[in-house]
Amino acid sequence: MAARTTRSHAARSLPGIAVQPTARRGVMRSLPDEEPVAMVFDGTTYAVLMATPADIEDFALGFALSEGIVETRDQIAELTVLEHDNGLEARFWLAADRSKALTARRRAMTGPIGCGLCGIDSLEEALRPLPVLPEGGPVFSAAEVAEATEALRALQPLHDQTRAVHAAGFLVPGKGIVLAREDVGRHNALDKLIGALNAAGIDAATGAVVLTSRVSVEMVQKTVVAGAPVLIAASAPTARALKLAEDAGLTLAAFARAGGFDLYAAPERIVDGDPDVA
């Protein structure tokens, strides 16, 4: 699988007017960039998503994996990221068996950022069955989980610059967050993380996904398909997302901030004290 790196500007400094009760003044603000990214498989556009134009190879690979278009990276014969005047194109050529499977499920997702189900073909596809995660796996201390979102904040240079993007990180017991990705879209940040994990040869089953956002259905779907057994988020889950997590055996910790969290579903992977002696 080959890929060509494209432009990677993630933010631009642009002028504005700061308005205060007693005065106005000119300001320059760093604003996150976003561009349309076309996911093109075997010559046909499958989805167009708005994304921050950085780590696009990770984004494309993670999208292909989390959407179930491919199950492993070696099912991609070629991946090239191309620049166009009006956006970016992630051009995939698939192995023959995956190309045939793709024709069975088509999805057009042209829409605003964060619209993870735009244009989906059916209600059945929106709530597609998820695999059940194996029992066991990594065990985290409650302290690690409580501190996870703050640790992720420390790995968000684009957020520090713009205050306007989401992040997804990968937490390993006893090692902290070992990988993180940012994007204006929370789904995109997670796809970028999944792609980066795969490219780095890191098994998602060995740690936890950490999110700066709420937990929606599609965030649970992507996490489970990636094989991560624990999901930690700064905000709330939806009721439907919680039901999916329970059915899939996904440990879900929400409202993880200010030293605490709420624990839902498969709680046995989070323990008080040192996991090694739990």
Rank of each mutant, 00 (worst) to 15 (best):
E150V: 03
I270Y: 00
L211P: 03
Q221W: 10
A180Q: 10
D183K: 01
A205S: 15
F261T: 06
V225C: 11
A265V: 07
E246T: 12
A253V: 09
D183E: 11
Q161C: 11
V225D: 13
M219F: 14
E147I: 00
E182N: 04
L155V: 02
I232E: 06
S235I: 01
D276W: 00
P267D: 06
V217M: 13
E150I: 05
A148I: 03
T223A: 13
R257W: 08
I177E: 06
A204Y: 08
P237S: 14
E150M: 01
R163W: 13
G176W: 10
L171V: 07
A233Y: 04
R257G: 01
V184K: 08
A241Y: 06
S216I: 14
P173F: 10
G201W: 12
N198Y: 10
V184H: 11
T206Q: 15
I202A: 08
A253F: 05
A228H: 09
A146W: 00
A245T: 09
A168Q: 09
R214G: 15
A168E: 07
G176A: 03
T238Q: 11
D274I: 09
V271L: 01
A248W: 06
D274E: 09
A241I: 09
P157S: 02
T238F: 08
T149Q: 03
K192S: 11
A226H: 12
A148T: 00
L252H: 02
L179M: 14
R269S: 05
L211Y: 08
L250S: 02
F261H: 02
R240E: 15
A151M: 11
A239T: 13
L179D: 07
R257L: 04
G227Q: 12
R240L: 15
R257K: 05
I194W: 11
I194H: 10
T206K: 12
V210M: 07
P157N: 02
Q156D: 03
T206F: 08
K243S: 14
L211I: 12
V225H: 13
A236I: 04
D276S: 08
A146I: 05
G201D: 14
A167N: 04
L263W: 08
E150K: 00
V184R: 13
A208H: 08
A234Y: 09
F170H: 07
G201T: 12
G273V: 10
D272P: 02
D272E: 14
D191V: 13
I232L: 07
T212M: 07
A248H: 05
L152T: 01
K175R: 15
G195N: 08
I270H: 00
I177K: 01
I202V: 15
A196M: 10
R257Y: 06
T206A: 14
V209D: 05
A151N: 12
Q221G: 11
V271S: 04
G169S: 02
V172F: 02
I177V: 05
